[in-house]
Design a protein around this nucleic acid. Sequence first.
DNA 1: CCCGTGATTTAT
DNA 2: TAAATCACGGGG
Length: 201
Amino acid sequence: MNPRPPRSFYRRDAVTVARELLGLLLVRQLQGKRLSGWIVETEAYLGVEDLAAHTVGGRRTARNASMWGDGGHAYVYFTYGMHYCCNVVAGRAEQPIAVLLRSLQPWEGVQDMRIRRLRARRDTDLCSGPAKLTQALAIDRGLDGTDLVDGPDLFIERPRAIARPWGRIVASSRIGVQYAGAWASKPLRFHFADNPHVSRP
DNA sequence: CCCGTGATTTAT
DNA sequence: TAAATCACGGGG
């Protein structure tokens, strides 16, 4: 069993957490089996001032409640009538910042992922997008608020030995937030250069 | 390019 | 109550 980062890992600013999540393993434990993938793409959402964040202007609703909680928990939301997206909550309670998990490099349970993602033609289609990875790993609103540090169903591991050399980290503007004015172009998306599992180059 | 899809949010 | 929105994915 790989060690998990402690609570203090998550209780930091969203950009730091977004960058340091790259190369860690997201694990979904389901029916006694592990589905997992290496985190290769993230986006930071900076809270009340961030025009692209669900908590902009201090918005606090039933949907985004877990974003207001302590770091190290999941914020899972439903959108476009059919998709779930999974965030890692950063900072401390009452500091509504988070990191959207955008892409994984599939690792364990790839065969199960293929069954959950029948539309994926290649393995680079399995988890190369925020709603693709939730479908592949069976993450839905039932996991909203789950504890990534201590929970049994969804968590993050940081193996002692590095699995592979990941290479350079690239920063770019976030995807799908064109409405956010000046915040749309800030370099808050992070991914490994030249990784084929990233949602788009 | 366009559209499906329906919960969530905001405006009356 | 009603209307608009949407941190997307898949197909042309």
